[in-house]
């Protein structure tokens, strides 16, 4: 695999503030380590280019862009929450074009049926004049799926996504049909409108690796957006689904020291003991924390997960997995407040 020093738009990979194995290895083969470094470098390049391209298109949402890319690399699904017009859909559409895989958009409405998502079996006439049932795939069969305004659909339709998101398969007539790889669901929801919406159940929320809050851009960013006479042209694909799968495999190989894993576990457990929490995060949150940490470490070019990776991923991973007590909500607390308190009080080691 070729190591490139110059990448898109002439931007180089940012320096990595960590060490690298040198020639005089005490253990293991120098060649093996070089291969590892090369793989890491390539995976990091993919992630970096993807992120830079998204940032160029989506102004003022760098944190959201980074979170989406890390979730993509970590192999999880993203729930984007924000007011209309903040660029949620634009992020997904741009990402779909950059990744280069198949893309499907599902606009969730109250009358949307599960078959509209998963697909349906139709009675078709065979060439010999007979009748047969043929399964027609729904929009879920795509590499990137945009579930727009997911909380407008009925729980029945929402739950149709459960198996697809968790198992990455769809059961049709008792037979599981695998979804394409990579399979990435990006759902959006509008927190403002409270009428005619169906809040996602906890089980559904838990399927999302991270929940990102899209906030209003600042004055400078708004000025830049206003200065654009027209939308920039759609970007050309920077990578292929295969490259994305490769980056995922590299991310999964990144290791974490025991004390880092212990720190993540402490964070998860702390969500249960917090006085404001009605319920806390489960083991899936632990997996999500580590996955996000690995993706972040890869983006930073590190071969190991750091405490700061876990801490940085914790708000996005835990905020939709913590149920607040009524008293805490009455006090104006949010799950973000709880996570911040947990981060402040949890010690390393």
């Amino acid at each position: 695999m070729t190591i490139q020093h110059q990448h898109m738009n002439g931007q180089a990979l940012p320096p990595v503030t960590n060490g690298r194995a040198h020639d005089g290895h005490a253990n293991g083969s120098p060649r093996a380590h070089e291969a590892v470094e090369a793989r890491m470098h390539e995976a990091r390049r993919i992630v970096f280019e993807l992120e830079q391209a998204l940032r160029a298109m989506i102004l003022g949402q760098d944190a959201i862009v980074a979170g989406v890319v890390q979730a993509l690399v970590a192999g999880g699904h993203v729930l984007l929450e924000g007011a209309p017009g903040l660029g949620k859909t634009q992020i997904v559409r741009t990402l779909a074009r950059l990744v280069g895989g198949s893309f499907a958009r599902i606009q969730f409405t109250p009358d949307l049926m599960p078959s509209d998502v998963l697909g349906t079996s139709l009675v078709v006439t065979t060439p010999n004049g007979g009748k047969d049932l043929t399964y027609r795939q729904g929009p879920i069969f795509a590499n990137l799926v945009l579930a727009d305004e997911i909380n407008r659909a009925t729980p029945k339709t929402q739950s149709a996504l459960l198996e697809a998101m968790a198992e990455r398969t769809v059961s049709v007539e008792g037979k599981p049909i695998p979804l394409p790889d990579p399979f990435f669901v990006l759902a959006t929801e509008n927190p403002i409108e409270m009428e005619g919406v169906y809040p996602l159940p906890e089980a559904q929320l838990d399927r999302f690796l991270v929940k990102l809050i899209v906030r209003m851009p600042d004055l400078e960013t708004l000025t830049l957006i206003g200065a654009r006479a027209e939308d920039p042209p759609p970007p050309s694909p920077l990578s292929s689904p295969e490259e994305l799968v490769f980056a995922r495999s590299v991310a999964r190989s990144i290791v974490a020291a025991p004390h880092v894993e212990q720190y993540a576990a402490k964070l998860v457990l702390a969500t249960h003991g917090h006085r404001a929490a009605r319920y806390g995060a489960g083991p899936r949150a632990m997996q999500a924390l580590m996955a996000c940490g690995r993706a972040r470490a890869l983006a930073a070019g590190r071969g190991v997960v750091a405490i700061e990776d876990i801490a940085a991923a914790a708000p996005n991973v835990l905020r939709h997995r913590i149920g607040l007590r009524f008293e805490a909500e009455a006090e104006g607390m949010t799950s973000d407040t709880v996570v911040a308190q947990i981060l402040a009080t949890t010690a390393v080691g």
Binding site: G19, N27, G303, V304
Partner: peptide
Amino acid sequence: AFERDRREDEMARFAVERARAV
């Protein structure tokens, strides 16, 4: 931590070597 735990997997050894280099 990996050196102390005598981890032998590739990535762990890679991390140990990096740390030693530092």
